[in-house]
């Protein structure tokens, strides 16, 4: 747990939040892509709590609600539940607090899909687009002209006036 997170949630809340984040964005590609909680997205959320009004309250309410629905389900804590059951619990929380849950989802995606460990798997690579950009080969002029031939042959598409 990073410092930012430590300032926002106690240990129990941190474990619960991390498990919820793992449920929102599970691991993938045979483990090559970590789940959001395991990647430490909670630290990103802690920073957002500091610069986004009301977001901290949203998270607190969501965690409280998650504890409630999990308790209603049984005695096993959320983070020890099997994945499908966790998702079922989280959907119940989403139904109770839809706006807060959507904000959490958006911020989770924001934290997750801006991490180089993740972006490297989505083509954009680990670095920002500038200054290097990407290799995009120039069009083959012959192929381009060939594709455009029928457009040229068809002729004018505007009205003289």
């Amino acid at each position: 747990m990073g410092n930012a997170q430590a300032n926002s949630w106690n240990e129990e809340e941190g474990v619960l939040l991390s498990a919820l984040l793992d449920t929102i964005v599970p691991s993938g590609r045979g483990g090559a892509l970590p789940a959001a909680g395991a990647l430490g997205v909670a630290d990103f959320l802690a920073a957002r709590v500091k610069d986004t009004a009301g977001f901290g309250d949203h998270i607190s309410n969501l965690l409280e609600s998650l504890s409630e629905v999990t308790a209603e389900h049984g005695s096993v804590p959320f983070h020890k539940l099997e994945g499908a059951v966790r998702e079922e619990m989280a959907k119940k929380v989403e139904a109770r607090l839809p706006e807060a849950f959507k904000r959490l989802v958006v911020q989770t995606y924001s934290g997750y899909y801006t991490r180089p460990e993740v972006t490297v798997h989505f083509g954009t690579g680990p670095n920002p687009p500038h200054p290097s950009g990407y290799e995009l080969p120039p069009d083959d002029p012959e192929e381009l002209m060939s594709l455009l031939e029928q457009v040229r042959v068809r002729g004018k598409r505007y009205r003289e006036c």
Binding site: T23, I24, V25, P26, G83, A84, E87, A90, K91, K102, V105, V106, T108, Y109, S110, Y112, Y113, T114, V118, T119, F122, T124
Partner: peptide, 21 residues
């Protein structure tokens, strides 16, 4: 678009794609 823009729903971030599995 980049992966984040795809995930949150486009030009505005109020229509995220589904979460979970």
């Amino acid at each position: 678009v980049g992966p984040l823009m795809a995930a949150v729903g486009g030009l505005s971030d109020d229509r995220p794609i589904p979460w979970g599995a």
